[in-house]
């Protein structure tokens, strides 16, 4: 997919998401940045949980991909953005996928919809046969 979503500024890190191990690593990296930009403990927990959901979706449904993560600045505020990208099958019906409880697999169907609630900014771009990109941001208060 072409990179239309917000890209974390300046120094961002990329993590491949190809195994369960990578999902753990992605969580740890997001947590480190959330601490660095002084998100509250609750906000750190929300962001890391959202990242965990999206990283797992990238792995399970997207067939693997990458996470790019970094600090972002806007209007004097600082936040953490994480972008999850895969070139898997894409999501045919985004509204359905974002409905609480809807799953095409054996999950609870809470990952995408829950992740959206847990963060401040959420964008999803997907194309059937072209892959999926989900970007999330949490701003320090």
């Amino acid at each position: 997919m072409s990179g239309l979503a917000p890209v974390p500024d300046a120094e961002h890190e990329s993590v491949p998401i190809g195994s369960n191990d990578d999902v753990v690593r992605a969580r740890q990296l997001v947590r480190a940045l959330a601490q660095q930009c002084k998100l509250s403990l609750v906000d750190q927990t929300k962001l890391v949980t959202a990242a965990s959901e999206l990283a797992r979706n990238t792995l399970v449904y997207g067939g693997g991909g990458v996470m790019r993560v970094g600090l972002v600045h806007r209007d004097g505020r600082v936040g953490v953005t994480a972008v999850f990208e895969d070139s898997g099958p894409g999501i045919p019906d985004v509204d359905q996928a974002l409905t609480d409880g809807w799953t095409s697999g054996g999950g609870l169907g809470l990952g995408l919809s829950g992740a959206r609630r847990l963060v401040d900014d959420f964008t999803l771009q997907t194309e059937v046969g072209g892959g999926t990109q989900v970007a999330i941001t949490k701003w320090a208060r």
Binding site: L41, V42, Q44, T45, K46, T49, E53, D100, L108, L110, S113, G114, A115, R117, L118
Partner: peptide, 14 residues
């Protein structure tokens, strides 16, 4: 369970 975990779980929908 940590308080932040409880808050997050409920918002997640679990």
């Amino acid at each position: 369970m940590r308080p932040a975990v409880a808050i997050t779980l409920v918002e997640l929908g679990l």
